[in-house]
Amino acid sequence: MNKFLDRFFHLSTLSIALLTLLVTGAIFGVLYQEAKPAIDAFGFDFLIDSKWAPNLERFGAFPAIVGSIMSTALAMLLAIPLAIGVAIFLSEIAPAKLKSPVGVSIELLAAIPSVIYGMWGLFYFVPIIRDLFGGLGIGLLTAGIVLAIMVLPFMAAVTRDAMNTTPDILKESAYALGGTKWDVIKDVVIPYAKAGIIGATILALGRAIGETMAVTFVMGNVHKIPSLITDPATSIPVALANEFAEADEGLYFSSLFYLAMILFIISFAIIAFAKFAFLKRGRK
């Protein structure tokens, strides 16, 4: 009886574990299948076509792709120096009493749902941008900044964790030669934690590119490549969020799935790259 139960338990857990692989594969498969009509209709030109006109049955993903890349790039540009600064503060500067509360606050920031970042962005940040730059206040710039604030806590936490792996004795050796805190960080901690820091950055990038709610409120969903950074634009997640429910017929839907497939492949690749190239868990 025990033998049977043992085998049953083993198989049950195995099949459920395999299920996760299956689902991932299914996602790739289903996305491809749904996107196929659009792939057949537009081919790779989909990626470089700038015209997105549902009523004309003409769909080009270029503005969405460019919007994704540009908003993410802007967000990373703002977030990276801040995140490294926060990580340095948390791992090397903060007195013991501050380390915990500040560190925990940063981690709690990461737990706030992205939809709330979006609401804050819409009601409180958009007017500021509007006052400073004119226009609607909704657009690439606002989206980039809100996205940066969203990505900051995660990246700061992972970077801090990477820096904390530097052995004390190595840091003390540099201090013992007369180094300042910055000398030690620059010459010992950062080279030692280099892989973890780069990995954290790329991982954050992978998450940022797939971010929907923080950006949907403030991007505008205009399928045009913005001429000014303050112009409304769109990104793949924003287009999906806004248009999925409206899409009424085949090619529109397929084009949206084509977008979803592109997004899935890009973010999967980026995250996998970060993981395998930089964030090895030492499982050898």
Partner: peptide, 27 residues
């Protein structure tokens, strides 16, 4: 900083910095 250039320290475990041999000694 000045004191530590006059009184140096060797630690319990070898603590070579993540850099070349030359750069370590020149640090």
């Amino acid at each position: 900083i000045k004191l530590r250039t006059q009184i140096g320290m060797i630690f319990q475990k070898p603590t070579a910095f993540p850099m070349s041999i030359f750069d370590n000694v020149a640090y």
